[in-house]
Design a binder for these strands. Structure first.
Lengths: 339, 339
DNA sequence: CTGTTAGCGCGTTCAA
DNA sequence: TTGAACGCGCTAACAG
């Protein structure tokens, strides 16, 4: 007897359950799935369920999927750029909501592959829906998945005409910061733009700020910054120069923390000398003093919108012309002490 | 023609490819899988591959799995407690390493379910391996999975006799902090223990510190603290009292940041008045000044050990007595300026 | 009213 | 290079 290594075996099948319960495989299926209008006597039902318990039977999704021609899987490849704790929070909420629809959320660990190679990789699993950043998709790759019966829901800065999208423009984060800063009376703004791999997102956020500023007739400048104290000190000097901005949007809370520190070192008080607004609402924002205002995205709201979109995609008639075009989330300004 | 909504269709099957290439399904299989010793003429091979391309054919893992009786999936349920960005990076590295073994890493979004309910949920997917925290497993649940042909690799504080484990005792983090602090000459230590859901992990880490201190004949106290400035100030006062500790292990870098701030406010200099060591090596540690020393776990090392363990589990003979008992990672002290 | 038989879906593999 | 059979669960048609 080996309690440890019994993994040799095949999993128990419905045939095993049937044998143990003394019924046919069909009966097992009817009982296990609680099929309506299937008239199975209670005693029989009980025998089957007992056998299920005893064997630890769990129907093989592969076989079920093969037969059904459709799966209840939602596949979510990791975003190409790390999004911090998003996998932790959004995934948790989304998973919960989807399971209410009988759907299972699986996160695919691969973060690099894109285009049709990625599409093939995902298609192999025959998920009902792939929920993925637009930057890993191409028109042909989406077509490939859709031909395979897999719906594709893309997170994109703007709606694509060739697919379903959940819109999220990073610029809206900058815009939210701008709206707040303008409302509080600031008339000279600046945006920190990180260097390195984050520059793309950073620029998008900064552009959102700049556009809102322009619309209000307020000047706005970009300030490049690395994630170091030295670079933060340099950025702080730029901010503090005569005629510099009275409020700075810092890309996110980490860059905000660095600039916060550098400004403090240079004797600036916040928000009186300079106002600061970060983004992503990281824990660090609350640890600073004065605490950093931040533009937040609510993971619960994101999960909600994702779930709704997935649902309407699965419910719409096949080959219908309709396209899902929702919004992923509305940025929310969490005002703390630096603004 | 509807370029948008073609998701109606079944995915192209090997039969479709066969038809298009004018060969049999067997041939398609042989070509697609590049089966050794199968002598398929080059022109035939080319026709098949062309058809594969044209149709965007990707073999259905369900069907393959059903036939093979075994899958190449590694399923990793999210840990019950949020682990911040650690997951994000570990998953990325692990995924990459596993794909080198022809394995696919899938993260299961459910974070709540435990015991046999969870086991059933995971078993449905018939993964080759489930890689999961021990706190979601029970002996029967593991048995259930193993009977279903799924290996279970648990992350646990200590090896379990009834399963394969990758050992990671949170106490080792505290121990690493202690080793460092003792080596630098400190003779009165303290550990911050967070309140709330993190208390369990916090106490484990603190105990690691305490044990190491005891072994060195050095006194060590626990200081409870919430994640607020007020609580941090109170903790700082406790630290600064006459005869208080000369070095504090702060549970993690966020609590470290709070205490760092509070100590600074009270005029303490680090590391001269008090030394501080955090943990998890979060970005925030480098943003503080003086920068916070931290006990780090290398996500690459963790991924390595996970991958090795998975491999040896899959390679060992079925029903062998051997048990995998590796170590998840060795804590590494990153010395910065506070110690 | 209660349960069963038969055949399907898709990729793989072995004998032919 | 191929035909046929298999693995597992589902369901329509059918029998007791």
């Amino acid at each position: 007897m080996n309690a440890v290594n019994s993994a040799a075996g095949r999993a128990p099948t419905s045939a095993d359950v049937a044998r143990l319960a003394g019924v046919s495989r069909s009966t097992v299926s009817l009982v296990v799935n609680d099929v309506p209008n299937s008239r199975i006597a209670q005693p029989t039902r009980d025998r089957v369920l007992a056998a299920v318990q005893e064997l630890g039977y769990a129907p093989d999704v592969s076989a079920r999927q093969l037969r059904a021609g459709t799966s209840r899987l939602v596949l979510m490849p990791l975003p190409r750029l790390p999004r911090g704790t998003m996998i932790d929070t959004t995934v948790e909420h989304l998973s919960e909501k989807l399971s209410g629809q009988g759907l299972t959320l699986l996160v695919h660990g691969d973060r690099k592959t894109t285009g049709t190679t990625a599409a093939r990789m995902w298609a192999e699993l025959r998920p009902a829906v792939v929920l993925v950043d637009v930057d890993r998709c191409t028109k042909p790759s989406v077509a490939l998945l859709r031909r395979a019966g897999t719906e594709v829901l893309m997170i994109a800065a703007r709606p694509t005409p060739w697919g379903d999208t959940l819109e999220f423009d990073q610029g809206r984060i900058g815009a939210a910061a701008a709206a707040h800063l303008l409302a509080v009376g600031h008339r000279r703004l600046a945006a920190i733009v990180p260097t390195g791999p984050l520059e793309g997102i950073g620029r998008a956020r900064a552009d959102g700020l700049a556009n809102a500023a322009r619309a209000a007739g307020v000047p706005c400048e970009d300030i490049a910054m690395e994630a170091t104290h030295e670079s933060a000190a340099a950025a702080a000097s730029v901010v503090r120069r005569p005629g510099g901005p009275t409020a700075v949007f810092t890309y996110n809370d980490e860059y905000g923390a660095l600039l916060h520190r550098a400004l403090g070192d240079q004797g600036a008080t916040m928000p009186d000398d300079v106002a600061l607004v970060g983004a992503d609402n990281l824990p660090i924002a609350t640890f600073l003093r004065p605490a950093l205002s931040s533009v937040a995205l609510d993971p619960v709201e994101m999960a909600d919108h994702m779930c709704t979109a997935v649902r309407s995609m699965l419910e719409r008639p096949a080959r219908s012309e309709s396209v899902v075009n929702g919004v992923l989330a509305t940025p929310l300004l969490v005002r703390r002490e630096t603004s």
